[in-house]
């Protein structure tokens, strides 16, 4: 995060030195787009807060923790939970680490973490504002398919699916 701040600051200063007018214009574009995207962004945050309240980490631990006996059921549950939630990596991966220690198969964790990152049910309002609803749905369907393939491949590599 610090790199982002430093990089933005340095770029902004360089731009200011090079051309004041252009820099002003850039900031205007930044503001305009930022505020334009606020409504769908807030909608997304509301959805995220609702999902997080109904599906707290405890629930994810309990649901996926049961996946050690039936890998394929666990994989499907992982895909569903990963798709309908949204959380930063610094929360998601420690969670996966706990599950791994509990004996949850890699393919279940892969299904969960990959769909978490790639499939965005909660980001739908935001994505729709940029791409329209049809493309958003197609793109997320493809992402879900990729998450399934990655999970199955993980199962093979870790010997969790019989060859």
């Amino acid at each position: 995060m610090k790199y982002l701040y430093a990089f933005t600051l340095v770029t902004l200063l360089l731009s200011l030195i090079a051309d004041r007018k252009k820099t002003w214009q850039a900031l205007k574009i930044a503001c305009k787009r930022f505020f334009k995207i606020m409504p769908p962004f807030i909608t997304m945050l509301i959805l995220v807060s609702i999902a997080l309240t109904f599906i707290p980490n405890k629930v994810i631990l309990a649901v996926l923790g049961g996946g050690e006996h039936n890998r394929f059921l666990g994989m499907v549950l992982g895909l569903i939970l990963g798709s309908v939630t949204l959380m930063p990596g610094f929360i998601a991966f420690p969670l996966c680490g706990i599950l791994l220690k509990k004996g949850v198969p890699y393919m279940v964790l892969s299904a969960f973490s990959t769909s978490l990152m790639m499939v965005g049910v909660l980001t739908y309002p935001l994505e729709k504002a940029y791409f329209g609803s049809k493309v958003t749905i197609i793109r997320n369907a493809i992402s879900l398919l990729i998450a399934i393939i990655v999970a199955i491949a993980t199962g093979f590599v870790f010997g969790e699916i019989a060859r």
């Binding site: 933005t8 770029t11 850039a26 900031l27 930044a30």
Partner: peptide, 23 residues
């Protein structure tokens, strides 16, 4: 908490996008 997390990133991202647009 999510609003705060994203506000730590978004304004900076948009400034960079603005600079990208003009330069």
């Amino acid at each position: 908490s999510f609003l705060v997390d994203m506000m730590k990133v978004l304004p900076f991202a948009f400034i960079l996008i603005g600079l990208f647009e003009v330069w």
